[in-house]
Amino acid sequence: MMTILVATASLHDRAFGWIERQLEPWFLGLSARLIFSSVLMVYFLNSAQTKLGDGPLGLFSPSIGAYAQIVPPIAEAAGYDVNQIAFMPWGLIVLAGTLAEFILPLLIFIGLATRLAALAFISFIAVMTFVDIHFHAVGAETIGQLFDSVHNSAILDQRLLWLMPLLLLITKGPGILSVDYLLTRWLGSESR
């Protein structure tokens, strides 16, 4: 009986070891980037577009809608007049949030500065969650809780799932099918 268990364990280790060696250089990073991007890139790009100010440089002068979404009590206190809101810190926070919604999903998608972009996106999600809970006064059912029977709370359950591919990208990197890998190879060949 022990021989059968040892043989089965050995076969298991060889088979899955071979699969792991074949997939290791490219699969996890690529799949994490594509899963994150297919679920959230368009969502965040659309959200960022609602924050643009007027004209071709609207990305750098967010609209009052951006302030209302990111720092609602500040926008309300200013009577929804952007000119009445101090750049430091509120304007800077709104500008950074708007730029992050545009830039970070694209960096993750193409695999450029992937680990930093994923880390920055985790910070963005944390700030977004704080704003949703404290400034938009969402209810407990929207926030959710860990290890409950409800599997689809809009904040805790969904955002924990958003974090998984980002954590994978931070720890494993984007894989060889990424701009990061191409740059590493190119810079490595330049130094020779």
Rank of each mutant, 00 (worst) to 15 (best):
D132R: 11
A120G: 08
A96H: 08
G55A: 11
N83D: 11
F121D: 07
M88S: 15
L23Y: 07
V179N: 02
M1T: 04
L146H: 03
K172H: 13
L11Y: 11
T171H: 05
I93Q: 13
G53C: 12
Q84D: 06
D157Y: 03
L187R: 14
V127R: 01
F16Q: 14
G175H: 03
S153P: 00
L40F: 10
I85F: 09
L23H: 04
I4E: 14
L11K: 13
T50P: 01
A96P: 04
S63H: 12
V138S: 01
A7F: 02
L163T: 04
I122K: 01
F121S: 09
L116P: 09
M164V: 15
D13H: 12
D180P: 01
H12E: 14
P72V: 11
A86L: 07
T8D: 13
L182V: 04
M2K: 06
Q84G: 00
E24K: 14
M1S: 05
A75I: 11
P56E: 15
W18R: 15
P56D: 15
L57I: 12
V42N: 08
M41R: 01
L163R: 04
L40S: 06
L169R: 07
F102Q: 01
L168V: 15
D13V: 12
H151N: 08
L40E: 03
A137W: 02
Q49D: 10
G53T: 14
A118M: 13
V71G: 13
G65N: 13
Q22A: 09
L183T: 05
P174D: 10
F44D: 03
D132V: 08
L59M: 11
R21Q: 15
I19N: 10
G65C: 02
I125L: 11
S31E: 02
L183S: 02
I19V: 15
S37G: 10
T142N: 00
A68G: 12
E101Q: 07
F44S: 03
R192A: 13
G97N: 11
L104E: 04
G29Y: 07
Y67F: 14
S47W: 00
G111W: 09
S47C: 02
G65P: 05
F36N: 08
S61Q: 06
D157F: 01
A68S: 15
V71R: 13
I4W: 07
I74V: 15
L112A: 14
G188H: 05
P62A: 04
S123W: 14
A77W: 03
A15Y: 15
M2Y: 09
S38V: 03
L106S: 04
W18F: 15
A78P: 04
V94C: 08
M164A: 14
F60W: 14
